[in-house]
């Protein structure tokens, strides 16, 4: 599976990468609630699309595009194809945000 573990202290000291996994999950959750129109959704890192009512292939893409937009990142086909759950998405957000941070 995806990108391995991230040292939280290292992450918080990188510019532009200050968010914890919990904070990123919260932001993703807000996006999902917004797109699916269901205020009761409370995702964990293990949550998959199958676990959430109304999360079909249409909403899946809407959610991915919104996450890309919100965090200023771009996912490639391999990453999209290998994504398993919310945790995978958080990994990808951190990976891409960190990469952009290093370039600065």
């Amino acid at each position: 599976m995806a990108a391995g573990t991230w040292d939280r202290q290292v992450m918080s000291s990188c510019s532009g990468a200050g968010e914890s996994r919990t904070e990123i999950l919260e932001r993703i959750n807000r996006i999902v609630v917004d797109i699916l129109g269901s205020p009761d959704i409370a995702m964990s890192e293990e949550t998959t699309a199958r676990d959430v009512g109304g999360w079909d292939s249409l909403s899946h893409v809407q959610i991915l595009l919104s996450v890309e937009n919100a965090f200023g990142i771009r996912l490639n086909a391999t990453e999209i194809a290998q994504m398993e759950n919310a945790g995978s998405l958080i990994d990808l957000v951190q990976k891409h945000v960190a990469a952009d941070g290093e370039r600065v």
């Binding site: 079909d56 249409l58 899946h60 991915l64 086909a77 999209i80 194809a81």
Partner: peptide, 14 residues
């Protein structure tokens, strides 16, 4: 990729 048909135009280009 599964569940991401709508991203196919991006996939074509990539």
């Amino acid at each position: 990729p599964e569940n991401a048909t709508l991203l196919s135009s991006r996939f074509v280009t990539e």
